[in-house]
């Protein structure tokens, strides 16, 4: 991992999907390296939208997103895609696995986009899965795993490239308490290794265990 120095910073973000209702209003935050940030709020309050803004998939109507002090929200589409592949690891609200591909292919997908060695990455998949307690053969299709396993496979996919920033949208939503603990432990460890970690969560317990909580 290439740790950031200043982390991911949002300044006065505003965003509206339709130009009338504003989903995000003047939102500012500093997501520092080494810290786990919990983003909480009611359903429909804009938590996922915020992660897409921070993850450079949506462009804010106003305000700015900075990585290590450099403005990145104004970059072109190709450059933002390159940053997503190089710096970010994403866990989406549902696992969003490719149902037609093997578990190994799913986990190593981001390596393809950052032009890494996918074959070498495939070799690391069994150990990574085992670390999260996912006991399925790597040539299994996602249709043959449980929802909780799928979410942990998605987490493996987010972490395989050792990204500087991990944005996780309800990563423990589908998990039993034991698996939740494993996942949170891994994310916390990732922050300890110097990563920026943000978790959207509904759980007060999860939020309480994080370094900072931002309520929407």
């Amino acid at each position: 991992m290439k740790p950031l120095t200043q982390g991911l910073v949002a300044r006065d973000l505003c965003f509206s999907y339709d130009g009338r209702r504003t989903t995000i209003v003047d939102w500012s935050a500093v997501l520092a390296p080494g810290q786990v940030t919990a983003i909480t709020g009611a359903s429909g309050s804009g938590k996922s939208t915020l992660l897409y803004l921070l993850g450079l998939m949506l462009t804010p109507g106003s305000g700015s997103v900075l990585i290590d002090g450099e403005r990145v929200d104004t970059l072109g589409d190709t450059q933002r895609a390159a940053l997503r592949s190089e710096l970010f690891g994403f866990v989406f609200q549902d696992a969003a696995l490719d149902a037609t591909r093997t578990v190994a292919d799913n986990v190593t997908e981001p390596v393809l986009y950052r032009r890494g060695d996918r074959k070498a990455a495939s070799g690391r998949v069994p150990a990574l899965l085992a670390a999260f307690g996912v006991d399925v053969p790597v040539d299994r299709r996602p249709g043959q795993v449980s929802g909780g396993q799928a979410q942990r496979i998605a987490l493996c996919r987010a972490l395989i490239g050792e990204p500087s920033i991990v944005l996780a949208d309800e990563p423990t939503g589908n998990l039993d308490p034991e698996s939740s603990a494993v996942v949170l432990g891994a994310l916390r460890q990732h922050a300890r290794d110097g990563g920026v970690v943000a978790i959207v969560t509904h759980s007060d317990a999860v939020a309480a265990s994080c370094d900072q909580e931002i309520r929407l």
Partner: peptide
């Protein structure tokens, strides 16, 4: 699937 590829960092050209 294409939305996911884009999210994970695939460029349009890719």
């Amino acid at each position: 699937d294409f939305g996911r590829r884009r999210a994970l960092g695939a460029s349009r050209g890719f």
